[in-house]
């Protein structure tokens, strides 16, 4: 059996096969779907099923006609609604990422500095919200933020305000929702990097005359930067395309690109335009992913050298 495998060059422990599994996964579930979306984005709109025309057609004379329709892309350029949706998405995702970083960094630092027995419990608490449905947790925020919600009721009963504050159906609520939902994705990579830092370095910095704040800025922060980048991208990338949170908490005011794509697909049934919107969004996101990739490579090199 083995010799047959060898003849067929099917050595499953060879580097080729080890990397083949993740590559195969990416090919099947990322590249092929993306190519399908790309194909749709270049096709004509038509009524029927599917709601777009094929790219390639054989005519009765045996000619192969390939039609690439770029109007879906030019159409997106003409309507400023799409541009604003993109900008809103990027802004909201950026605010959410900054919020996650501001809250997540001290938390991750605290967990990393806690005693090992406490660390396990604290990490469990970070992951605990995942045990309930994502949708349910976002709904819960409606109960907290709505005009009849807990916050407004409390403030009115305390006599601090007379009319309810508009806490929901706006950008604020969307950003809040994103911070709440994506916080663990910030904390976990940050913790992983902060935990690795040798805290004798901090003592060495104090010893050399650095006050606690300076020691943090010059030692801990630069050493935790790969964690900051990893965490930020893990929050930022999915947040840009987020659909559920702006739908439930953002109201009609917030127009994020995820919602626009949803509308194009399901309300307008203009699949080619929706596909083009998705392709453009992906191109936007490739940039931060590439940066992330580069930093990770650097980190690997750094660890190899150790």
């Amino acid at each position: 059996m083995k010799s047959i495998l060898r003849k067929l060059k099917l050595n499953f422990s060879s580097p080729f096969w080890v990397t083949a599994i993740p590559f195969g996964w990416l090919l099947l579930f990322f590249l092929i779907p993306f190519l399908i979306v790309l194909k749709i984005s270049f096709s004509d709109l038509r009524f029927g099923l599917p709601p777009y025309a094929p790219l390639m057609e054989w005519t009765s004379e045996g000619l192969l006609i390939i039609k690439i329709n770029l109007t879906n892309y030019t159409f997106i350029g003409t309507d400023s609604l799409y541009l604003f949706a993109y900008l809103d998405s990027l802004t909201i995702a950026l605010l959410g990422t900054i919020g996650c970083l501001c809250i997540g960094y001290p938390m991750a630092y605290g967990i990393a500095k806690a005693s090992p027995s406490k660390r396990t419990i604290l990490l469990m608490l970070v992951i605990l919200p995942f045990w309930t449905s994502f949708l349910l947790r976002v709904y819960a925020w409606i109960g907290i933020l709505s005009p009849q919600g807990y916050i407004n009721t409390l403030l009115i009963n305390l006599g601090l305000i007379s009319t309810p504050l508009s806490l929901i159906d706006n950008t604020f609520a969307t950003v809040l929702g994103i911070i709440y939902c994506y916080l663990p994705f910030m904390i976990l990579p940050l913790y992983a990097f902060l935990e690795k830092i040798d805290y004798a370095l901090l003592e060495a910095a104090y010893d050399l005359g650095a006050r606690p704040f300076q020691a943090f800025i010059r030692i801990i922060w630069p050493l935790s930067r790969p964690g900051v980048i990893a965490g930020s991208l893990l929050v930022f990338i999915p947040a840009v395309g987020e659909f559920v949170i702006p739908e439930l908490l953002g109201g009609s005011q917030t127009l994020m690109i995820g919602k626009v794509i949803w509308n194009e697909f399901f309300t307008n049934r203009t699949w080619p335009v929706a596909a083009a919107l998705a392709v453009i969004m992906l191109v936007f996101l490739i940039l931060p992913i590439a940066i992330f990739q580069r930093y990770q490579e650097q980190q690997v090199r750094f660890l190899d050298a150790e």
């Binding site: 370095l201 060495a204 910095a205 104090y206 010893d207 005359g209 050493l223 150790e306």
Partner: peptide, 30 residues
């Protein structure tokens, strides 16, 4: 007095060199 306010320096057992700085930067830190 805290460590950063003493005319004392220490050489650590693990050396505690700052990994993200060159030798010169490490020495110049103080």
């Amino acid at each position: 007095r805290p460590a950063y306010d003493r005319p004392v320096n220490m050489m650590f057992q693990s050396y505690a060199l700052f990994p993200h700085m060159t030798v010169e930067q490490n020495i110049a830190f103080g």
